[in-house]
Structure formats: structure tokens, C-alpha cells
Nucleic acid binder design. Structure first.
Lengths: 233, 233
DNA sequence: GTCCGGATGTGTTCCGCATCACATTCCGGA
DNA sequence: TCCGGAATGTGATGCGGAACACATCCGGAC
């Protein structure tokens, strides 16, 4: 699983496209790539578990993963879905505390892990990296705040509309086509804090009003303006 | 409003009791106190507005404030209630982005504002301060995550029970007495994303089962174990 | 092709809580 | 002291969505 030496170059090529690491410059990116390890994961595999000790920051070089928060009772909420170029496990760097969520691959994934100590070294030498990291955290806090507000104020249909717009922006094509292999309706339900049957019905309702089209796991946004309105934007 | 020079000593005395600043040592705390300004606010006054440019980190030296997030439609959710020794406005330091929430005094408050540039200077000289700040952010992210999960999984009664336990821990006496002048039932409702009448009825229900006692705005927790169970702990 | 397990589509029932509409009590200011 | 506005307590109604229960459907293993 651990990447052989020549992998470092391929890792560096991917890291260079990620804002957080590109701040390091060409030389720094190469050093970062050598300072960590990359692994491949199959769909359904768990990259790390909620509660595990957290000692690394991860960057998703390719594929897709979901961020899952579970309660002791076994209920699950999906906090986010990450694609190529996004990072996770940031909290490990803030304090040494255990992972607050699990990361599960939803399709074949290639992830790069950089140990806390290595990252801190890099930050000392490249203040721009620290800056980028703080930006990252700012975005994280804002997103979580918005998510809480959405749960409080929007109904299921509104949250679903907003979710589809977000997914289209992050993982979709230019024409509103969102292809989501590996993401089931159960996942969508867990993303907006709803039951799976309710999500199904909400999707049907959007289809009936010609706001979206669904075929298999590909969703096409037909009326972005109406969806934005439905989502309170 | 701006503190006259001799105030810096009183500010320093308060800052020394705050983990974030105590990391600076006696000398550093004194410098920090001189680098910012403190002001007093009356109940209902707004310390800063959501959407304002954010250029300072605040420390609440005394009193109590609420963190309010508003939608364009005018709906409000109270993200947190802060007491003496807590900080707010952290996001201003991460990026230069506008305030993501408003801060409103719920009782007479004394707050200290430290400009971003000053704080960054201090951080450069005192790495321990940066460490503490990252801890702070970690706690913030964790709390927001939990809040989202609670909205998704707990019913109104559960969220209320959990809220009361939290408030008792932060602002209450040792014996489970939580005195909350300035905090109305509407505020409690906005803290858990519920309507005001529903909160009233939920409180009555807890009283009827002898889990709490209410007199005016003082709530006494009578059966902490049962409350914890009700809140899913 | 044949199975089988998981994902998807629907119907039915029921309950929590938002919403509206008041009565009542509390409190600060003139 | 009285007054007025805000904060509380309660009732009645309606609806969204959870929970449960199935009937397909689809895709991969063999």
C-alpha cells in the first residue's frame, strides 16, 4: 500500500494543484510529497475511524470520500462529501484530540497523509502554508455554521435543493450534470438529516416540477434559479 | 467608551485568567492589554454585526453575550452564549472575511478587542499563543459539529435537556442552579432551533417530572442523571 | 443465463412541533 | 402608583416527515 519512492513525483504533481500545498512552491511541494505517504482505498473502505488518535492531515489526490459522524446509538450524519484536491483530518493539527468523524471512500480513492510533525515543520519554514491552513479552517467553521442554520430553518425540500446545488458546484459538470457513483439516496439523506424514503419523495417532487432530472445516480439540474429559490438563496 | 490608560492594568488582570492569553506570561499579558481597547456594553447592545468587516479578536472580560446568526429572512439562531473569560470573533484572524454572526450583550458586558495585526505580532513572538489559538479553533469546530448532529438526531426535549446541562456547566453554580438574567425563553428556543411555545411546554414537562425547577429565570437541575439520559448522553 | 443483496419507489399511520391566537404575569419607567 | 410592553403560560389546528412495511429494480457473483 505504501507508495514506492517513485510515487513521490506523482504525489507532488497532484499536491501542486491543491491551494494549501501550492503555497509551498515547487521545491516545497516536492519535500511535502516525500514527507508523507499515499495509499489507495476501495469503495467502502474506512480511511480513519471516529475516535482514532489523529496524527496526520490528509489530502485526497483522487476519488471521493464521505465524512461521517456517528452517535453512540448508531445514527449517522454525513457532514460532507470530498472530491479530488480536498483535504480532511485538519483537526489533528489543532490539538492532539481523537478524530471527530470517520472518513469512508465512496469510490476508489487515493489519499496522501502528512504527519502532524512534518506539517508543522513545513509551516515554520513557509508561513504562506500556515496562512492557507487558517483560510481552510475559516471555511470549515463557516460551512458548519451554515449547516446548523439550514437544519434549523429549512425544510427537507429546501435542504435537498441546496445540497444539490452544492454538489453540482463541487463535483458536477458545467451544464448542471451531477454524476455521483457510490453516493446512494441513503447518503443524501444522511447529508441533510432526513430519512431515506423522505429524500426519495423529495427528489420525485423536484422531478415532477421539472427542476431536476434523475437517471440512475446521475442528477441533472434543469432549473438552477428555481432550485436556489427553494433552498432559500 | 474607550478605556483610559489606567484601565490597561485592570484589563491585564482579567486577561491573565483566560487560557488563550495566560500563555503569554505576565509580561506578554500586559503588552496584549495595552495593544487593544476595552469597552462596556449595555444589555441589548450589539458588539458587532454579522456582515461587518472583522478585524479584531474579542475577549469577554465580564458579563454575558449571545452569538446570533441571522438569515436574510430574519430568522435567528443563537449559536452560543458566552460568559466571562470566553472569546469571540476568532474568524477575523483566519481570513479577512466578514463577521459570520452578530454578538449581542444579554447583560452588562465588558469586552476587550485586540486588532488582528497586534495579535499576529504577539503570536510570532509567543508560539504558545498560536498553540492555544489552534486549540480554541478545534473546540469551535467540534462544538459546531455536535450542534449539527443534535439538530439532526435529538428531539426538542433532548436538545433542551442537553442545553441546560451545558449552561449549568458553563454558567451555573456547583449545585445545578443556573441563573440566567437576560436570557429569555425565546433565546433558549433560538439556541436549540425550536419555537418559543414549544420550549415553554418542554420546560413544563421537565418540571412535571421533577427533573428541574424553574423560578423566574433561574433554573435548578434536580436530576442530572435523568437529564443526561434525556439528552442522549 | 440465475440468484441474491442492496438500492429504489410507494402506501399507511401517527406524532411532534410549527403556527396562530389568546390570557396572564411580570417588570421598568413616567 | 399606575401604565404599557415584553415575557410567559395554554389551547386548538394542521402538516411535515419519521417509522414501518412492502413491492420492484438493478447490478454483480457464479
Amino acid at each position: 500500500m505504501t507508495g514506492p519512492p517513485h510515487d513521490a513525483e506523482r504525489v507532488a504533481a497532484e499536491l501542486a494543484a491543491i491551494p494549501l500545498f501550492s503555497a509551498l512552491g515547487e521545491e516545497g511541494v516536492a519535500r511535502a510529497a516525500r514527507a508523507g505517504l499515499s495509499r489507495h482505498y476501495r469503495p467502502g473502505q474506512i480511511i480513519f475511524h471516529q475516535g482514532d488518535p489523529g496524527e496526520s492531515l490528509y489530502a485526497l489526490l483522487d476519488g471521493m470520500v464521505k465524512v461521517v459522524f456517528s452517535t453512540e446509538q448508531g445514527d449517522e450524519i454525513v457532514l460532507n462529501v470530498l472530491g479530488r484536491g480536498e483535504t480532511f483530518g485538519e483537526l489533528a493539527l489543532l490539538d492532539g484530540s481523537p478524530r471527530s468523524a470517520s472518513i469512508v471512500a465512496v469510490r476508489p480513492a487515493w489519499a496522501f497523509a502528512l504527519p502532524r510533525a512534518r506539517l508543522l515543520e513545513l509551516m515554520r519554514e513557509h508561513p504562506a502554508l500556515a496562512d492557507e491552513f487558517l483560510h481552510l479552517l475559516g471555511g470549515l467553521v463557516r460551512r458548519l455554521t451554515e449547516q446548523a442554520a439550514d437544519l434549523a430553518f429549512l425544510d427537507l425540500g429546501g435542504r435537498l435543493a441546496k445540497l444539490l446545488l452544492h454538489l453540482a458546484g463541487k463535483h458536477g459538470g458545467a451544464d448542471g450534470v451531477v454524476s455521483l457513483p457510490g453516493l446512494t439516496q441513503s447518503d443524501l439523506a444522511a447529508l441533510i438529516g432526513a430519512s431515506r424514503p423522505a429524500v426519495n419523495r423529495a427528489l420525485q417532487s423536484l422531478v415532477a416540477r421539472n427542476l431536476i432530472a434523475v437517471e440512475g445516480r446521475t442528477i441533472t439540474l434543469l432549473d438552477v434559479a428555481a432550485l436556489r429559490k427553494r433552498g432559500g438563496l
